[in-house]
Simulated scan of single mutants.
Amino acid sequence: MTGAPIGMKYEHDSPEYETDPHGDRILFNSHMRRAEPRNPDRYTAKLRRRSYSYSLGINTFGMLDMGLIFMSYQKNLQSGFIDTQKRLNGEPLERYIKPFGGSYYFVLPGVKRDEYLGQPLFSEVV
């Protein structure tokens, strides 16, 4: 399994929604289309994300203990992660997943030459 959109070869290939305007190939209620509908207005809230699979073997109840750790970076938490999660509410995949735990971490912007860590933030205060 490559993680590629249906009909494509690689994970990062475009799903080409424009060639599937009626949702025949990639359904409108699919996780992929709900998470990133490729609406031009939506591109104002890009997020970088990555999931990591894990498996801890069999738990004490004899069930497989496995899942995904999801991480993302975005400029605006509300228009990035939170709004994306709202679009995913009610998707068919919810029958198979049970989210638990989570936290938010805020990361300072990168450092340019001749700057110190967090300088743009402190410059705005003055």
Rank of each mutant, 00 (worst) to 15 (best):
G57S: 05
G57K: 00
I58T: 12
I58H: 04
I58W: 02
N59E: 03
N59S: 04
N59H: 02
N59T: 03
N59W: 01
T60P: 00
T60S: 08
T60D: 13
T60R: 06
F61R: 11
G62K: 01
M63T: 09
L64K: 03
M66L: 14
M66F: 12
G67V: 01
G67P: 00
L68N: 03
L68T: 05
L68Y: 05
L68G: 01
I69V: 09
I69Q: 07
I69N: 06
I69E: 08
M71T: 09
M71V: 11
S72M: 07
Y73W: 10
Y73C: 04
Q74T: 04
Q74V: 05
K75V: 10
K75P: 01
K75A: 14
N76C: 13
N76M: 06
N76L: 04
L77P: 00
L77Q: 02
L77H: 05
Q78M: 11
S79N: 06
G80K: 00
G80A: 06
G80Q: 01
G80Y: 00
F81T: 02
D83Q: 04
D83E: 14
D83M: 01
T84E: 10
T84A: 10
T84Y: 00
Q85E: 14
Q85D: 11
Q85T: 10
K86G: 05
K86F: 08
K86A: 15
R87N: 11
R87E: 11
R87A: 12
R87T: 08
R87S: 10
R87I: 14
L88R: 09
L88I: 11
L88G: 11
G90K: 04
E91Q: 13
P92F: 07
P92G: 12
L93Y: 13
L93D: 08
L93Q: 13
L93E: 12
E94D: 10
E94R: 05
E94C: 04
E94L: 05
E94K: 04
R95H: 14
R95G: 13
R95E: 15
Y96W: 13
Y96P: 00
Y96G: 11
Y96R: 06
I97Y: 09
I97L: 15
I97G: 01
I97D: 03
F100P: 03
F100G: 08
F100H: 10
G101T: 06
G101C: 06
G101F: 07
G102S: 06
G102Q: 00
G102A: 05
S103H: 11
S103T: 09
S103P: 00
Y104K: 03
Y105A: 09
Y105S: 08
Y105K: 04
Y105I: 12
F106N: 13
F106G: 13
V107P: 00
V107G: 04
L108E: 07
L108M: 14
P109G: 08
G110F: 06
V111D: 10
V111A: 09
V111H: 06
V111Y: 05
K112S: 15
K112T: 10
R113A: 08
R113P: 03
D114L: 02
D114F: 03
D114V: 01
D114W: 02
E115K: 00
Y116E: 15
Y116G: 14
G118R: 04
G118D: 07
G118C: 04
Q119T: 03
Q119M: 06
P120T: 05
L121C: 07
L121F: 13
L121A: 08
F122C: 05
S123E: 15
S123N: 13
S123G: 02
S123R: 10
